[in-house]
Amino acid sequence: MTDLIPLTALGAVDARTARFGALTLTEDDSLGLASLTLRKGQAAPTPFGLTLPEVGAMTTSGPYGAFWTGANQWMIIGAGQGTGDFAALVHAEAPNASITEQTDGFAAFHITSAAGPDLIPALMAKLVNLPPAAYAPGHATRTGLEHMTVFVLRPSDTQISVIGMRSYAASLWHAISVAAARLEHVPV
């Protein structure tokens, strides 16, 4: 084990979390990410038992998940795999595909609502140009947020995750937290 101390995308030792009324915004630095792209003619593998999803969708299997990112390309995610060599694990699961380490390419933020699902579209309407159906539970979409490219994942009706480029983490946090703060006192 290295003795170097990692920092989160927001530049602190501990992941940041903030509450805005019923909304909680959490930085997640424990997520392992690796892209999986099929080689020419290759059939889709099932890493960690995941069925690689169709366009705009995500799937999960235990601590692992996958979402569509491009033609024959998916992002594989592993909860709790942030500091290890997650790409190597994915490669072992899908040895014939092209795997690229992406864990530190991105910053992940989870937004949870303690006041039911209605707050989620109210928040997202201020952030992304998508109809709510595009981020319904089970969906994963690549879109723009304040001129940054992000993935929007909806694991459940009261949670939505925004995964953006790591270098933009501070700007992403700013954008999401400003929008969330403006909903703090808005009755749903």
């Binding site: 792209t37 099929l38 003619g41 390309q73 380490e101 992406q102 864990t103 390419g105 480029m165």
Partner: peptide, 14 residues
Amino acid sequence: ELDVQLISTTDAWA
């Protein structure tokens, strides 16, 4: 027709 896979990793590596 080429068997090539591309992805950016700019942010992944310091």
